[in-house]
Amino acid sequence: MMPPPLLEARRLAYAYVGGTAALTGLDLTIARGERLAVLGPNGAGKTTFLLHLNGTLRPAGGQILLDGRPARYDRASLAAWRRRVGLVLQDPDDQLFAPTVAEDVSFGPLNLGLSDDETRVRVEDALKAMGMDALAGRPPHMLSFGQKKRAAIAGAVAMRPELLVLDEPTAGLDAAGAAALLTVLEGLHAAGTTLVFATHDVDFAWAWADTVALFEGGTVTVQGKAETVLADRAMLGRANMPLPLLAELGMAAGGRLPRRRAEAVDLFRAMAGRDG
């Protein structure tokens, strides 16, 4: 028998106070070790869904299954759940609270019950990975938006969760920051971490996701392999999203679709050589 997926949402429904129906019967599966991109227009329910993945929001209908078992929302279960699932919010100001970046990053590891020494190592590793080690002693209110974002991500990475959930991780990061983030995510993925991220960025999803879920109006319209879903012009068009640039260029060139920039460059160089 197949082992149950790491996490599963079944017929998930949620409405905010005031009546906005944010999720309307949403089904989605998160397999162990995969990189899942949650794509969709503004207001599609991405953030609302992600907040269900660590029990922050409790569904009004349907349920979350963890390892095939219905999630429970008592204090102890939530604590155990959040040891396994890390969450990075869309706005870093919602996450940073401590007087300095390093202290903020130490918050999660200490809550895991780690020793001071072990926490210090985790903090250093996480900050270094995010390229924030030089700013470790800075107070968060003296950082740029992208730096805050990196600090917030470091705070979740330092907990080394089994599943890391990131809401719009690349929004507001410069090219170097985004590249650093991707390197960190690669490392986490290689170490076995399951990654779920919400994004508007089809190019980012094309380059990095194994699986893609398209959100619209509070449901998942399709979940499937990134190379299939994101190469389907009609399906993306219904969600008002463009094809990823590299996919479109690859189609125009009439060959294999390059997933990474470097692959695309090689491809076009080879074509130019053939013609010239």
Binding site: L78, G86, T100, S106, F107, G108, N111
Partner: peptide, 24 residues
């Protein structure tokens, strides 16, 4: 609203009522 979301962020990292951090 900000305070509410800050609590969400803290809860995600295991907030249990004590704001433990490692001061340098």
């Amino acid at each position: 609203e900000r305070a509410r979301r800050l609590e969400t962020g803290l809860a995600a990292r295991g907030f249990d009522g004590r704001l433990r951090v490692l001061a340098a």
